[in-house]
Design a protein around this nucleic acid. Structure first.
Ligand SMILES: [Mn+2]
Ligand SMILES: [Mn+2]
Ligand SMILES: [Zn+2]
Ligand SMILES: [Zn+2]
Lengths: 147, 147
DNA sequence: ATACTAATTGATAATAATTCTTGTTTAGCT
DNA sequence: AGCTAAACAAGAATTATTATCAATTAGTAT
């Protein structure tokens, strides 16, 4: 099964005009093995067991390629600076992928989102956040449709 | 009105056993003036117009105090390393405040969350994310109740 | 009003995650 | 086998954040 996946990945790398290297395959395999939501550093440590010479830079670049190929996607918006909420009223946000602008969304329905019972039993909820990500009016890409 | 707010803040600082300093008041005022979801750097630039000697460190510490007093709250989970999603199926997450563990939540209802029409008209939605934050079973604080 | 003391400040160094630079190697093609 | 653009490793640079520490100061007790 991992065999099949690796084959898929190498094809997708080549089809996108990228070279297939042992380092890239190793990063992908580490990705499959490592649990759910790895950090770059976790992947790096994993890969280094078999490729002690691999550089952190290569892992970063490979992850960038994998994001581009939509094999993985970033969770949360990490690399940015911390931002602070000044409005104490419960509300949610739209986050523009392009300009990072965060806009408030007040909508009672979003506040009623609930964790499924089964999960709630083992997770103590302090709050929740709904974030819509996409493009704001200023950054909307020229030919894009808005639906 | 800003007068009133400043008074409130100075009281809350003192009531929590913290000292009120001109720097702290200035950070709070910058917070009120600056738009919606400022970064530390934006606040720093703003405050420096009146207090050119203030250090970035002081702004960080003041923000930490304001978070503690629940005057502001961090948006997103920034300071951590980037994490990557390996499961392409649409789903959502619980994020443990303590150990940062991210766990998948599959629930069709969460996928049906919709932006209000009025907002949708000016924001091109690419996707949305529902994150429940709180404490996982391992990190649940001793006396806390789970509801 | 003055003095005391612990909290706070500013300057600076240290960390941590990420990106950039550069010289060397190599995958894929001819 | 040879060519070349892509990718590599090593390490410097950048950016956000936190830690250290001597000097200052807010709040309190004289
Ligand atoms: Mn907001
Ligand atoms: Mn997930
Ligand atoms: Zn935008
Ligand atoms: Zn936890």
């Amino acid at each position: 099964m991992v065999e099949r996946s690796v084959r898929n990945i190498t094809d997708r790398f080549r089809q996108s005009g990228r070279k297939v290297t042992p380092q890239r395959v190793a990063v992908f395999e580490a990705l499959c093995e490592g649990g759910g939501h790895p950090t770059v550093d976790q992947i790096y440590r994993e890969v280094r067991q078999r490729f002690p010479m691999i550089s952190l830079n290569t892992v970063y670049q490979t992850m960038e390629a994998l994001v581009d190929l939509k094999v993985v996607s970033p969770v949360g918006h990490s690399l940015e600076a911390a931002r602070y909420e000044t409005d104490p009223a419960p509300h949610h946000h739209t986050v523009c992928i392009a300009c990072k602008r965060i806009t408030d969304v007040f909508d009672a329905a979003l506040g009623r989102v609930k964790l499924p019972r089964a999960v709630k039993d083992r997770f103590q909820v302090v709050g929740h956040r709904v974030e819509f990500y996409g493009y704001c009016a200023d950054c909307r890409s020229p030919g894009a449709t808005n639906r």
